[in-house]
Amino acid sequence: VTTYKLVINGKTLKGETTTKAVDAETAEKAFKQYANDNGVDGVWTYDDATKTFTVTE
């Protein structure tokens, strides 16, 4: 299990959150659900070296 980070650069929501997941794909699903629940819809990137997803509106 690895800790992944999400950086949110939204129009109305900015911040960070983390999740523990077995792989990046599982973390991405959780983060996309989180973003959707919070009304954030943007461009996604992922940096494997830092295990960090970024979504920018």
Rank of each mutant, 00 (worst) to 15 (best):
V1F: 14
V1I: 13
V1K: 10
V1C: 05
T2R: 09
T2M: 10
T2H: 08
T2V: 10
T2Q: 09
T2S: 10
T3S: 06
T3A: 07
T3Q: 11
T3Y: 06
T3W: 06
T3E: 12
Y4A: 00
Y4N: 00
Y4S: 00
Y4H: 02
K5E: 03
K5Q: 04
K5S: 07
K5Y: 06
K5T: 11
L6D: 00
L6M: 07
L6E: 00
V7S: 04
V7E: 04
V7H: 06
V7A: 05
I8N: 02
I8K: 01
I8D: 01
I8E: 01
N9K: 13
N9E: 15
N9Q: 08
N9V: 12
N9P: 03
G10W: 14
K11Q: 09
K11N: 11
K11M: 14
K11I: 15
K11L: 13
T12H: 14
T12N: 15
T12M: 11
L13Q: 05
L13F: 14
L13C: 08
K14R: 14
K14W: 13
K14P: 12
K14Q: 15
K14F: 06
K14S: 08
K14N: 15
K14T: 08
G15R: 09
G15T: 13
G15M: 13
G15P: 07
G15Y: 15
G15D: 15
G15H: 15
E16K: 04
E16Q: 06
E16S: 06
E16G: 03
E16C: 04
E16N: 03
T17R: 15
T17Y: 15
T17H: 15
T18R: 14
T18D: 09
T18F: 15
T18I: 08
T18Y: 14
T19E: 08
T19P: 01
T19M: 14
T19Q: 08
T19S: 06
K20C: 05
K20V: 13
K20L: 13
K20S: 15
K20H: 15
K20G: 15
K20T: 10
K20E: 11
A21E: 05
A21M: 03
A21N: 03
A21H: 04
V22C: 04
V22Y: 10
V22W: 08
V22L: 09
V22S: 13
V22H: 11
D23W: 04
A24E: 10
A24G: 06
A24R: 11
A24C: 05
A24V: 14
A24S: 10
A24T: 13
E25G: 11
E25P: 08
E25A: 10
E25I: 12
E25Y: 11
T26F: 08
T26N: 05
T26Q: 07
T26M: 07
T26H: 12
T26D: 14
T26E: 12
A27C: 02
A27E: 00
A27F: 01
E28V: 14
E28P: 00
E28L: 13
E28A: 09
E28Y: 14
E28F: 15
K29E: 09
K29S: 11
K29A: 12
K29P: 02
A30K: 09
F31G: 01
F31I: 02
F31Y: 02
F31Q: 00
F31P: 00
K32Q: 09
K32W: 10
Q33R: 11
Q33C: 04
Q33I: 10
Q33N: 14
Q33W: 08
Y34C: 03
Y34N: 02
Y34H: 08
A35E: 01
A35V: 12
A35C: 05
A35G: 03
N36D: 12
N36G: 14
N36W: 09
N36V: 13
N36T: 13
N36F: 12
N36P: 01
D37E: 08
D37V: 12
D37N: 12
N38K: 14
N38V: 07
N38Y: 15
N38T: 06
N38F: 13
N38R: 15
G39Y: 09
G39D: 13
G39H: 14
G39L: 14
G39K: 12
G39R: 10
V40F: 11
V40N: 03
V40A: 04
V40E: 02
V40M: 08
V40T: 04
V40S: 03
D41R: 06
D41C: 05
D41E: 13
D41V: 07
D41H: 09
D41N: 13
D41M: 10
G42T: 01
G42S: 01
G42C: 02
G42Q: 02
G42I: 01
G42N: 01
G42P: 01
G42E: 01
G42M: 02
V43G: 07
V43C: 05
W44D: 00
W44C: 02
W44M: 04
W44F: 05
W44I: 03
W44T: 01
T45R: 15
T45K: 09
T45F: 07
T45P: 00
Y46L: 02
Y46Q: 01
Y46R: 02
Y46I: 02
Y46A: 01
D47Q: 06
D47H: 09
D47E: 15
D47N: 08
D47C: 05
D47G: 02
D48P: 09
D48S: 12
D48H: 12
D48T: 11
D48E: 14
D48M: 08
D48K: 09
A49I: 11
A49D: 10
A49V: 08
A49S: 10
T50G: 06
T50Q: 06
T50K: 11
T50C: 04
K51N: 11
K51S: 07
K51Y: 13
T52M: 05
T52G: 02
T52K: 04
F53P: 00
F53E: 00
F53Q: 00
F53L: 02
T54W: 08
T54F: 06
T54M: 10
T54E: 06
V55Y: 02
V55G: 00
V55H: 01
V55D: 00
T56G: 03
T56I: 06
T56V: 09
T56C: 04
T56Q: 13
T56M: 08
T56R: 06
E57F: 05
E57I: 05
E57N: 03
E57R: 03
